[in-house]
């Protein structure tokens, strides 16, 4: 699987990350490495296999529609770097 520099750049933007040139190279090398080891990616034997997203067969639990206490406002904002009580401020949305 050949992956272009642009694809890596796009992926890092999609993850809202900026990679230094040496980090990009490191990632390219690692990606090559893992794809070499992942021989099964080329295998057509997997085509009809169902994908598993949960390790064990499990049934979700459901909750009744009953209110639980919310956080006090100060607590809710206590970790927020941009808190402007009672809001959280963010920089302008449009570039």
């Amino acid at each position: 699987m050949e992956i272009s520099r642009e694809e890596f750049m796009q992926a890092s933007w999609d993850a809202r990350l900026e990679l230094m040139p040496e980090e990009l190279e490191g990632l390219e090398k690692q990606t090559k490495n893992i794809f070499e080891q992942a021989t099964f990616l080329q295998s057509s034997a997997l085509d009809d296999v169902e994908a598993t997203y949960f390790p064990l067969a499990q049934k979700n639990t459901v909750r009744e529609d009953l209110a639980a206490p919310s956080l006090p406002l100060e607590t809710a904002l206590s970790n927020a770097p941009g808190a402007e009580s009672p809001y959280i401020q963010v920089p302008k949305i449009v570039e």
Binding site: A67, A68, A76
Partner: peptide, 20 residues
């Protein structure tokens, strides 16, 4: 209450008081 937690869905509360 909300879809995945017990916070109230009531409209018009003070901002950020119905959160967890």
């Amino acid at each position: 209450t909300k879809l995945f937690c017990g916070c109230s869905t009531a409209f018009g509360a003070e901002p950020n008081t119905q959160v967890c």
